[in-house]
Nucleic acid binder design. Structure first.
Lengths: 244, 244
DNA sequence: ACATTCGGCTTGTATATACAAGTGGTGCGA
DNA sequence: TCGCACCACTTGTATATACAAGCCGAATGT
């Protein structure tokens, strides 16, 4: 039937994946020059415009930066991607001129119970990926992140290097996000959270539950827990005056 | 010499601006179909690929959505900030089928100190209006609202009847809001706040600092303090991944 | 009456080409 | 030596073309 199904993925996607891989395994370190459009076109036996598309989209994604006349370079893993509301925590920290680091607590597969299955829009009892990370700013914990990921949409999540890319970056690459749903609460931490975040006695947390969607469904569900003393959420938005 | 330098901005940018303008002034309402690539190419006397670029980039920016075989449509960007959408608390409560009431603690004039003057964009030592209210849902306090108002933009604020209209409604009437700036924090209440909100021992608060703008400047600055047990902030956003 | 096919419209991918424009080096001339 | 012109290489914009692939309604056949 579909002859094109042999060509599983588009050529510009292959080039993107190739470049991402080189960046991930540090063959091409930060700030290094990546091959020019013409060089990639020759290497992949495609036209310059196809290679160009791969570079342009990775530039939009914040993986690369381009400069007319000079070339294309691997972004210093902060760059300016900073999407509006969904900010990358590592970006935010680096933007403040502070040092970002991450501690991986747990990465594993789990079986979805009914509630989680509904949240992710998948079948109950199917496997989901789970990660538990602590994000640190100058060595101080600023976010405890528990995240469930839809394996259908991000099959390589478990094997990713979280010290190179934040979960947010990985998910953006795998499935472009179209929407997000948030619940924001003030909570008192339990003992485990308190010790993970090195909280003072009687210190509340700002907890964000976030569900992100792509066109293919729910990508992931995350609980982001922040010490109130080290985090506040801010932003400026245009006001919609809808009246339902 | 360079004919192209007359063309200050690129053609695909012009097309983008044209489309954005139509969306802004609602000539093309939400979910309506926008001209096809070929139609735009003809209208702007350019190649299909140039029109295509404009559409693609607006799609990436979340202004449009595209669907192979069907066409390109104006995205529903209504949910661009429902979490931080300026909702009317009395509407929200009534929407839940509960009884809304308000308790007026204080309404007065104050002299702005330097910090407040900067916040409101007015001269220091000038007068500002201040109100302090408690909003109740079925008799239980759900929000303590401290609000400073720019008297130049809302001259009749002090004499308003807050049992009839919420501050939000009064401000919207006086000066249409165009933008809002938020800071969200988890805090522990002091004794006064705790007694006003009838908080349990050791209960944190979700505190929203909100500055609202109209085209003429800052309208007001508010601190909205909610008991965590009786409030959570939620909403669904569309995610824009545009680069500035 | 119903299902199937088909054609027209749409977006998606890919190519070849041309010129514009920014960067940096090399070499030439004053 | 200094400045300048020039050139090679790079990314940016624009065009023309081709075919693939998804959607939908209209025509067709049973």
């Amino acid at each position: 039937m579909k002859i094109a199904s042999i060509m599983a993925i588009a050529k510009f996607e292959q080039i993107k994946q190739f470049i991402c891989h080189q960046v991930e395994i540090s063959t091409w370190p930060e700030n290094s020059k990546v091959p020019s459009e013409n060089a990639l076109a020759q290497q992949f036996d495609c036209s310059r415009m196809t290679a160009r598309r791969a570079l342009t989209e990775l530039c939009d994604a914040g993986i690369l930066v381009r400069s007319q006349g000079r070339g294309t370079f691997v972004a210093t893993l902060k760059s300016q991607s900073s999407a509006l509301e969904i900010k990358n925590i590592s970006d935010e920290i680096r933007q403040r001129g502070h040092q970002y680091s991450v501690e991986v607590l747990l990465i594993e597969q789990r079986i979805a119970d009914d509630e989680l299955a509904i949240t992710l829009g998948i079948d109950a009892q199917s496997t989901v990926y789970f990660s538990s990370l602590i994000h640190l700013e100058n060595g101080q914990p600023v976010q405890l992140e528990h995240r469930y990921v839809n394996p259908a949409l991000v099959p390589n999540y478990l094997t990713s290097d979280f010290t190179k890319f934040t979960p947010h970056e990985l998910l953006s690459l795998a499935a472009p996000l179209t929407e997000a749903e948030h619940i924001i609460e003030a909570t008192m931490p339990d003992n485990q959270v308190s010790s993970y975040l090195q909280l003072a006695e009687n210190e509340p947390c700002l907890e964000i539950k976030r569900r992100t969607f792509s066109s293919n469904g729910v990508v992931s569900f995350a609980r982001l827990i922040h010490p109130s003393s080290r985090f506040r959420l801010g932003g400026r938005f245009s006001v919609t005056t809808k009246k339902p």
